[in-house]
Amino acid sequence: MNTLLPAFDFQQVFIEPWTANAASSVWIVAMGFFVATACGLVGNYLILRRMVLVGDAISHSVLAGIAVAFLLSRSRSSGAMFVGALVAGVITTLLIEAIHKRTRVKQDSAIGITFTTLFAFGVVLISLYGGKVDLDQECVLYGEISNVPVMAAPLPAALSRVAAQVPVLKDAGIFWRGADLVAPPDVLRMAGVTLLVALLIGVFYKELLASSFDPGLAFSLGINATVMHHALMAALSVVVVSAFEAVGAILVIAMLILPGATSQLLSQRLPVILGLTVLHAALSAVLGLHLGTWLNCSIAGAMVVAGGGLFGLAWMFNTRDGIICRWARRSQQRSEAVPPA
């Protein structure tokens, strides 16, 4: 058996992840889902505002923030890293804007200058203090979502006592270690970020809509488009930084674009699009797990490949300008057309 693809064993690819390996599958899929949902929801607004590359920029300059945070705090605590990365994200958006507004440099150039410089700064710092900064380059670029379940830690005892009363939770062995309810803190943090993003979009729905569609009108309605812009950028930084450890600097860009781009092909209504984004996130997380199990490859990568596959399907089959529909319409027009006499 010397083929390019490993043998496909249904039992091993689709059943075992949810039986023998349920304890890790649940957390991996949950992490993938939360990352893709949070990124996808924010990403929709980036796509609508044509600012997707700012997400790209933040995901790279985060590296500098992490390196500086490590050097200053002398620890690999995720708290320090998170703060460092967040500060780097905010600095990136401010720098891009300052360069673009105060000089004749156009926005795309400003983005290119800012993130490559900050990323390179991060690379310099890491290679300079290489021995001391224990940062795995592959992890930085591609993330390590399959490490997530390993970190499962006990939750507060009070929460365990409450959960012990809930029938479904009580019998789910994967959530328990003895009498303690356990969960990976990364997943919990990502879930919190996702909820926060969803909540903010819900509360500021019309402000975001008006300022994305027509900043001039938004201003005349008393909605401060600048404040909305900075709020969106701050949310983007938080999301990218939280997702960073799981999917890395490059794959997080896919998570920002793919769910929204796919949904926007399938619907022309923003509320529907946001719903489809969540669906896309869930499907790519689950499909990615199975794909990664089958090919025994990076699960984060497999999730993005799955998400890209879903985009391809939407491209082919959407009813508005999908390849199939266009082809069908053309052949219908041909068959219905009456040749000139």
């Binding site: 609508l48 044509r50 019309k206 402000e207 809509l209 008006a210 994305s212 569609f213 027509d214 001039g216 009108l217 005349s220 309605l221 008393g222 909605i223 926007q264 619907s267 022309q268 209504r269 923003l270 699009i273």
Partner: peptide
């Protein structure tokens, strides 16, 4: 305010009713 028509992206995923409703946001 009625901005120039070209100032917005007309592929934006909103309906006619959605856009007119924006006028009420204030």
């Amino acid at each position: 305010y009625v901005p120039q028509r070209e100032s917005v992206d007309w592929d934006f995923p909103v309906s006619v009713h959605d856009v007119v409703l924006m006028g009420r946001y204030g």
